[in-house]
Design a protein around this nucleic acid. Structure first.
Lengths: 194, 194
DNA sequence: AAGGCCATGTAACAAGTTACATGATTAA
DNA sequence: TTAATCATGTAACTTGTTACATGGCCTT
């Protein structure tokens, strides 16, 4: 049982019915978006292993050789055990930090350009998360868990943007704000949309 | 040129002199810590490729078959080009978010345990970052770039801890604080755009 | 001087990414 | 009916991880 396999079983559990590889990819994208990458190739490979181990069983075949799978009781127990007992720590690679760590040997202007592009991406993502959250909030059930997941993204992006503002002035990207002032009314509403 | 190779060249540049694979791993751990994972196996593999491509050249051999390498002019240009022109976006897998996304089908108690353990890890890391930052601040040069890197970690961990406090009460880990009162800790971000 | 310890390099394995061939659906 | 498009599965490749054998270093 690995992280990818466990996540697939969990999504099957959440989905309720039979899902194909493509559907799983879509559900993952929708449910955990940019915080849990999954490619179709991975899904196919893991699904094959999961079926071999009895964690999923094939459902009725669909068009295009699409093979929906269904979670088995064994599979449900396996992923839950993994989730509660073997959940690994978060691992990250933050490319922009590499640039910052090398700040002593880089041209300030080059570093500043890198930071500016990175900051723009974070601003865009923050805006996208907020927009999506507004959509979810309007839905009947309120989608509390999807919104909780999104909230992580919002908190993270806000934190990163605040961090940009703390960088030395000669490399700080424009529009990153300034280190100190956190008093003024933050423009909560519609910002420059991506 | 890939991210791992580029980071090795950058660290060689920063280090100044000849470094062995093991030294590179140590420098990476010290400089970008938990935001840039590197294993010795990767370093050996990449170093072989880098030497083949003329990005590094072998220095005087040391004990235990240790083979220090030195950055070449070609290597310096290559990693800088990558850093400023091809820096990839951040990719993350946040296991705890998987649990949250599956909140609808998990036992609340199980989810709460998972969250509590995750929160504990984040608290520990935040404390460690702060302690390390205090050490760096006391150093002669002040280590501005190392501290800037660390600051990212501090901001990130603070944000995650704040996020925990926003989760539904019946799964919120103890010691996570409460959603509303944001008196003391860094508050709503001043991510002013324009 | 000897034995445990630790760092080195190597190799096998697992996971993630990219590119491609095929077949179904849709629109003209 | 035909052509374009899109989703599917497969394969090849790259990157990351884990486990292991060896040899210098340090302590006793």
């Amino acid at each position: 049982m690995n992280a990818t396999a466990a996540s697939l079983l969990g999504l099957l559990d959440l989905g309720g019915g039979d899902l194909t590889a493509g559907e799983l990819v879509r559900v993952a994208e929708q449910r955990i978006g940019s915080f849990w990458t999954l490619t179709r190739s991975q899904v196919h490979r893991e699904l094959a292993a999961l079926e071999r181990d009895g964690h999923v069983e094939p459902g009725p075949a669909g068009p295009r050789d699409a093979r929906p799978v269904r979670l088995t009781a064994r599979g449900r127990a396996a992923y839950r055990e993994w989730l509660t007992e073997r959940l690994p720590a978060e691992t990250t690679r933050v490319p922009v930090l590499l640039a910052v760590a090398l700040g002593a040997v880089l041209e300030p202007q080059a570093l500043r350009d890198v930071l500016e592009r990175s900051a723009a991406g974070h601003r865009d993502r923050l805006a996208a998360y907020r927009a999506l959250d507004a959509q979810l909030a309007a839905l009947p059930g309120g989608e509390p868990w999807a919104r909780a997941t999104l909230a992580y993204g919002v908190h993270h992006e806000e934190a990163v943007l605040r961090w940009f503002a703390t960088l030395p002035e000669h490399v700080r990207p424009p529009d990153a704000g300034t280190p100190r002032p956190r008093a003024e009314p933050p423009a909560e509403g519609p910002e420059r949309q991506a």
